[in-house]
C-alpha cells in the first residue's frame, strides 16, 4: 500500500487517544472496580432456560418467594431469544436452598426447558485462579521479552511489550467502562490478545528490521521515513489478517454460545487494539527511542570536533 500519511509524525495523536481510553478506564476502575463474575468472588450463580422471553418481574417474584430477594444488578437475561435467566447471589447456596429454587422454578415456570444449574465458587478457589492468571500474564510477558531481545533487539522487545500491555489495558478499560462481567474465560481471552498483539507486532518489526538493513538510515529523518515506509508496506497484510480473525470473533460473538460471549467480546476489542497498537503505538515508541539513541550518539560524535 502507498503511504497515505506520515504515521510516525502523527504518533502523538495516537498516544493521546490510547492514553485517554486507559485513563478513563483506570478512573472507572478506581471508582467502581470490575464487574466480577462468581468465578472471581465467592457466591453462586443460578442459570436456567425458559421457552419464552424472560419475564423480569416474575423471576424476581420467584426468588423472593423463597426468601432470596434479588438486587438490581443480580438478574441478567441472556440468549438470542432473551430466554435464559442468569441470577447471581452473593452467598454460597446450601443443598436445601438449591432444591427450593428448583421447586420454585417448576412452580413459576412449569414449561421451562431445563432444570436450574448452579455454579458456586469458594473464595479461596477464586483467589487461586486470579493469582495464577496474573502470574501467567507476567511470566508470559517476561518470556516474550527475552525471546524478542534475542531474535531482534532489546528496544523492539520493550516497545512490543508496551504495545502488549496497552492492549491488555484497553480491554480491561473497556470492560470496566462498559461494566461487562469479568469471568474466567476473560483471562483466556486476555492471554490470547497478549499472544495476538505480540504476533502482529513482530510481523511489523520484522519488516522494519529488514528495511533497516536495506536502507541503512543515518539521520533521524531517514529513520522515520524507513519506518513509515515499512508500516505502509505491511498495512495490507495487517488489515487483511485482522479482518479474518475479526470475522471469526464477530460471528462467534453473535452466533456462538452465551457462555463465551464475554470471551469473544474481549477478543474483538483486543484484536482491534492489537492490530492498531502494533502500527500506531509500538513502532512510534521504537522510533522515538531509537532516534534518541541516534541523537546522543551523534552528539558524542560531534562534541570532540572543534569548529
Amino acid at each position: 500500500m502507498k503511504p497515505r500519511f506520515d504515521i510516525i509524525r502523527a504518533s502523538r495523536w495516537f498516544f493521546l487517544l490510547s492514553g485517554a481510553i486507559t485513563v478513563a478506564g483506570i478512573i472507572v476502575f478506581a471508582l467502581f472496580g470490575f464487574n466480577l463474575s462468581t468465578d472471581f468472588k465467592s457466591g453462586s450463580e443460578v442459570q436456567f432456560e425458559l421457552n419464552q422471553r424472560v419475564p423480569d418481574a416474575r423471576v424476581r417474584q420467584m426468588f423472593a418467594s423463597i426468601g432470596l430477594p434479588l438486587g438490581d444488578t443480580s438478574l441478567t437475561v441472556g440468549g438470542i431469544q432473551q430466554n435464559v435467566v442468569m441470577v447471581t447471589l452473593p452467598e454460597q447456596l446450601t443443598a436445601k436452598q438449591i432444591s427450593e429454587i428448583q421447586s420454585a422454578e417448576h412452580r413459576f415456570f412449569p414449561d421451562a426447558k431445563q432444570d436450574i444449574q448452579v455454579n458456586s465458587v469458594d473464595p479461596f478457589v477464586a483467589e487461586q485462579t486470579a493469582r495464577k492468571a496474573v502470574y501467567a500474564v507476567l511470566a508470559a510477558a517476561a518470556c516474550i521479552v527475552v525471546y524478542i531481545a534475542i531474535r531482534f533487539e532489546f528496544r523492539f522487545a520493550i516497545s512490543g511489550i508496551i504495545a502488549l500491555l496497552h492492549d491488555a489495558f484497553i480491554v480491561l478499560a473497556a470492560f470496566a467502562l462498559l461494566r461487562r462481567e469479568v469471568d474466567l474465560t476473560f483471562v483466556a481471552a486476555l492471554l490470547t490478545i497478549v499472544g495476538y498483539s505480540i504476533n502482529d507486532t513482530i510481523v511489523i518489526f520484522d519488516r522494519i528490521r529488514e528495511n533497516l538493513k536495506l536502507d541503512k538510515p543515518e539521520t533521524v529523518e531517514e529513520l522515520r521515513t524507513v519506518v513509515n515506509k515499512s508500516l505502509w508496506q505491511v498495512m495490507n497484510r495487517s488489515i487483511r489478517t485482522v479482518l479474518t480473525v475479526l470475522i471469526a470473533a464477530v460471528i462467534l460473538y453473535f452466533f456462538g454460545g452465551i457462555s463465551i460471549r464475554n470471551f469473544t467480546f474481549a477478543l474483538i476489542i483486543g484484536l482491534v487494539s492489537g492490530a492498531y497498537s502494533s502500527i500506531f503505538i509500538a513502532s512510534p515508541i521504537w522510533v522515538a527511542w531509537r532516534s534518541r539513541s541516534m541523537k546522543r550518539a551523534d552528539g558524542d560524535h560531534a562534541a570532540p570536533i572543534p569548529e
Binding site: A136, A140, L191, G195, Y196, N199, D206, R207
Partner: peptide, 27 residues
Amino acid sequence: FRTIVDSNATTFIAGLIMYIFGGEGDV
C-alpha cells in the same frame, strides 16, 4: 517464513506459559 516463525513462536510461548501457570480448566 522467518516472519511467520518469529510471530508464531511468540504466540506459542504465550500459550505455553498459559498452560504452565493457567491452572486447570478453561485456561
